[in-house]
Design a protein around this nucleic acid. Structure first.
Lengths: 192, 192
DNA sequence: GTCTATAGGCAGATAGAC
DNA sequence: GTCTATCTGCCTATAGAC
């Protein structure tokens, strides 16, 4: 388990899903890219469902670690949110969608265990955002109406949607504008 | 051309794409659902790329007609925006994504002519939203900072993303909350 | 662990009868 | 227009040699 080849398989599969979708690539595509045969991919991940679950599970754990890191590095709420946006921005920069944004869209065409993992990812993001928003408002660093949960939902939806549109229209700046405008609205003073 | 069978093929293909994605269904799936053979589907749409282009083109034209209808029925900007949201809400209600939200995500796995159609759809939406926002602010019916184009981008991104998340998390209300909160922010007074 | 070989099925697509 | 029949190739997946 967790040898170097398995990691390369996951890396390749992830990139393929983030660009083409879960049903837009094959075991042969993965194998071809890393120079092995498709039977070897089955050795690590017997079925495509197994591969999908392992992939999103890893993605979610890596993401959780990034979120922990943000809390360590930044004490101020607005900087935490900016760093959160930056995670998505980096993905878009490499011409990919959020793995779970893609899989969330394709829901009905996926093995159910994969969908469970995708839901867990969204819940992770929203729980984290919710805490940052709540604490930020309490500390007077953020200002918004309504409950933090709704704002977290809205913010995450905006980021996922903006990635899709920016990529489709070949204009990555659209993502930056949409995200930074939204962050501006959460600031306590009336300055932009 | 444009016989009843062709329309049924398009209707079925559209629903399948909106739920599973472009690479998540086959000609046999379409044929099976409407009780014909897959060869008959090829009679109307020789290749899957042809089908995709015809589908998004029809979708875009129908959507444009809806948008015209909204302008006719509603004079006030906030009502126009609400009616715009309602178009997406109805799609989500039938357990589907926006056709172009799905196809936009799958960009790299699609025939290029399909991507062109998807871009045209997003541009249609944004152009329309931009006009409504601009005129609404001029008339004092809406209040927002920044240029209307950016707000239109942001709003459309939010709606597309909220559909994905609401569907993935099996909670359609999330879409309603995200959309209505956003509309509230565009109101001129400080009331929610 | 990686390979060759192969199974069994489904994909998109076409030819030609009716 | 719709069918049957078929092609070619790819798909996921497995068995078994090395």
């Amino acid at each position: 388990m967790s040898g170097i080849t398995a990691e390369r398989v996951l890396d390749t599969a992830q990139r393929l899903i983030q660009t083409r979708g879960f049903n837009g690539f094959s075991y042969r595509d993965i194998a071809g890219e890393i120079g092995i045969k498709s039977a070897s991919v089955h050795y690590y991940f017997p079925s495509k469902a197994d591969l999908g679950v392992a992939l999103v599970s890893r993605y979610r754990k890596n993401f959780a670690a990034e979120l922990d890191g943000i809390l360590d590095r930044h004490a101020e709420a607005s900087k935490r949110l900016k760093a959160f946006v930056e995670l998505f921005r980096q993905t878009l920069k490499s011409e990919r969608l959020c793995l779970c944004g893609m899989l969330g869209a394709e829901r009905d065409g996926l093995p159910e265990p994969v969908n469970d993992q995708v839901r867990a990812f969204f819940q992770l993001c929203e729980g984290w955002l919710c805490e940052v928003l709540k604490n930020g408002r309490k500390a007077g660093e953020l200002a918004f109406r309504g409950n933090p949960r709704n704002v977290a939902d809205q913010f995450l939806s905006l980021l996922e949607g903006a990635m899709v549109l920016a990529r489709s229209l070949n204009d990555p700046e659209r993502f930056d504008k949409a995200a930074s405008t939204y962050l501006g609205v959460l600031k306590p003073s009336t300055q932009e």
